[in-house]
Simulated assay, not measured.
Amino acid sequence: MNENPIQPSLAQRSLSKVPEITLIFWIIKIAATTLGETGGDALSMSMNLGYLVSTAIFAVVFLIAVSAQVSARRFNPVLYWVTIVATTTVGTTLADFADRSLGIGYAGGTSILLLLLMLSLAIWYRTMGTVSVDSVKSPKAEMFYWVTIMFSQTLGTALGDWTADTAGLGYLGGMMVFGALLATLVAAYYWTRMSRTMLFWAAFILTRPLGAVVGDFLDKPLQAGGLAMSRFGASAALMTLMVACILLVPQRAAARNH
């Protein structure tokens, strides 16, 4: 009996609810992480709700979004990116609450969150045998995926703030540092045989502090080195960019390539 060799790939793709990793994925991801910074600051600072209340609000949104994403039967790009934005906003206010309100500091917050991220990846790998995005095809794998992303988004805020403030590089300096690191990962992807899974997670993690410093650069006061844009205006512009990319550039679910 002859079988169509294309069918397994299509069947595998239909089970995945995370997008294929393409250039548009990274463009939307950077916009989403920047939106997380401006959106989180808009609620906690501009609306004066504080870090704790803002974290509680965004945490509820995050839990609802993740529940919907895990319960969905197929890949939905709008739902996926809403969930990503939910992780970036709650990550922003949670990191700010830990760093500033609890007095842990940027270095302390970065260290703790890096440890939690590494533990999440280690437990995921030990349980599932892989941390590849291509393997996120079951509720258990999805939960590991979103917990890991949550830690990476929160870490990114603390790391971005530490680089710009404590390390004294400023927002432009932070953008140059993280931009250079991401460029190094791109070079490694094209010109080395380094693990694609490792390169993906390294890039995914680094886009968050890049978004954090870009977001701060957009909305912080001129005297602090920012552009003093309205947090609501910057958030609206970033959201518009994301929506345009999602609607105009088709995305499909990830599929195993091996």
Rank of each mutant, 00 (worst) to 15 (best):
I149G: 09
V131E: 06
L182A: 01
T130G: 04
R126L: 11
A234D: 02
S111T: 15
P139T: 10
V186Q: 14
I104G: 08
M175C: 09
F232D: 11
V131Q: 07
S195C: 05
A180G: 08
R193V: 14
L155C: 02
S135L: 06
D161K: 02
F151P: 02
A224W: 02
L113F: 13
G129E: 09
T197L: 09
I112G: 09
W124V: 00
A234P: 01
D134S: 14
S135H: 12
A228N: 12
T130D: 13
F204K: 10
A167W: 13
R208F: 12
K137I: 15
G215Q: 00
F144D: 05
G156I: 03
R231T: 14
A234I: 05
K140N: 13
Q153C: 15
A212D: 12
Y171Q: 06
A164E: 09
G160S: 00
M150T: 14
P209G: 00
K137F: 11
V186P: 11
W162K: 08
L115N: 04
A212L: 14
L113K: 08
S120F: 05
G179M: 03
L210C: 03
I123N: 08
T207R: 08
L116M: 05
D219C: 14
L210K: 06
A224H: 03
T157M: 09
G103C: 09
I112C: 11
Y171T: 03
A167G: 14
G108F: 09
D216A: 10
T127W: 10
G109D: 01
S230F: 00
A167T: 08
T197D: 11
G211F: 12
L121K: 06
S135F: 01
G226A: 07
T157L: 04
G173K: 05
A122E: 04
S120A: 10
F232P: 09
L222K: 09
L121S: 05
G226C: 07
I104K: 07
S138C: 03
S230M: 03
I205K: 09
Y125C: 06
P139R: 05
M118W: 12
Y171G: 04
V213I: 11
Y190H: 14
L117W: 13
L114P: 03
Y125T: 10
F144T: 00
A224C: 04
S120I: 06
L210E: 07
T157D: 01
F144L: 02
W146V: 00
F204L: 06
A188V: 06
L199C: 04
L199K: 02
M128W: 07
Y125E: 13
D161S: 02
K137M: 10
Q223G: 13
Y145G: 00
L155Q: 00
F204Y: 15
V186N: 14
S111V: 14
R196P: 02
L206Q: 05
Y190R: 15
G108M: 12
L185I: 14
L117E: 13
T127S: 12
F232E: 11
D216H: 07
A164T: 07
I205H: 10
P209K: 01
Y106F: 11
G179S: 06
A158F: 06
F217G: 02
G170I: 06
Y106D: 09
E142P: 12
F178S: 01
M198N: 11
P209D: 01
L218I: 08
R231P: 13
T192C: 02
